[in-house]
Design a protein around this nucleic acid. Sequence first.
DNA 1: TGTACATCAGTGAACGCGCGTTCACTGATGTAC
DNA 2: TGTACATCAGTGAACGCGCGTTCACTGATGTAC
Lengths: 191, 191
Amino acid sequence: MGHSQAAKAGSRERILAAAAQQIREGGLDAVSVGSLMKSVNLTHGGFYGHFESRSELIAQALQRALVDSQTAAKPFVDRDRPRTFAGMVKQYLSAGHRDRRGNGCAIAALASDVGRADERSRAIMEEHIARFMEKVGGLLEDESGDSAIVAMSAMIGALALSRAMTDTKRADEVLNTVRNYLVEHFGPDET
Amino acid sequence: MGHSQAAKAGSRERILAAAAQQIREGGLDAVSVGSLMKSVNLTHGGFYGHFESRSELIAQALQRALVDSQTAAKPFVDRDRPRTFAGMVKQYLSAGHRDRRGNGCAIAALASDVGRADERSRAIMEEHIARFMEKVGGLLEDESGDSAIVAMSAMIGALALSRAMTDTKRADEVLNTVRNYLVEHFGPDET
DNA sequence: TGTACATCAGTGAACGCGCGTTCACTGATGTAC
DNA sequence: TGTACATCAGTGAACGCGCGTTCACTGATGTAC
């Protein structure tokens, strides 16, 4: 064995990153202490050297999942040559995004779960929803922010519906229809 | 004790109805055999006289939740004097609907859970999504059905976002903004 | 730089608990006469 | 209609299992000299 202090920080990081991905994939209840620790090649007992409790881990993993997926989306809103609203919507409402939950938008993945969770989780989620809305709003011309609210609602709903379907054709149709609508009605620029 | 055959059907019905409501409130994982049976004043052992397994119950309760919430929505689409699209949207995107999950739309409540569930559950959900889209489409003038897809996505997303928030004002704003947008842009009639 | 010791990251057995499921049992219901 | 018996809806103890959590222990790391 033998484990340096520096290694500890790395372990914590791996645990948290794994938890964040796993809750994006399977929801807030999908992570158990035992399976999580095993997934980063540690034993369950060591968990409590890093986190006070499972519920503390879940709160931090939720925050982490939201930050991670926001970071992944950054190229669409922050770069020197910023992407357009249309570009963002196309990516968000793609089959790829729908099918790779573990790396996808944590708001869409977890909004429903968090709606049933404690106030702390909802506060964390709310902050990230507001942040995302601002970013979407920044790509739009509507300064009231109303368009961002409508567009974001439609995107999250479409993703949830598409993920709940078995028929790929129908699932794709939902994404495409909402994508086309948003690009046409909200996009400040064409394409 | 002593239990007639007629009573058995009644028991099954109560178990299923309770399960359907509980999964609308807490998601597909929220129902345990023990607590469910206790909630209808029976003991856990009797459960297997009614259902083959917990997973069989969940599938039937999902179906039931979807049927129940569709029935509850019927006044908006089926009555002699049918409600308008605007009327339906106002009800759907109301604070009351958001706050009373147990009696609300099961598609919105469970779409996200079902997205991670087995194919059987997704097939059940898909059928009800299609049915609901048709009904919404029937209230709209757009014969392609595209408007129904967009409207439904926006409604489900708005409900999910609103439920995930702690700040009531912000949560209400999401509902109101999407509601106003849909009524204005999709409603075939005014108000 | 080399040795002696304290620290502490991670291990793995053990805990109490609730889970889904099984099953021997109870006693009112429903039937045969 | 009244009695005897089979049925079977519901009971509750018991099962194996995985959960979150605790804790005595191990041995490399980091420090004091």
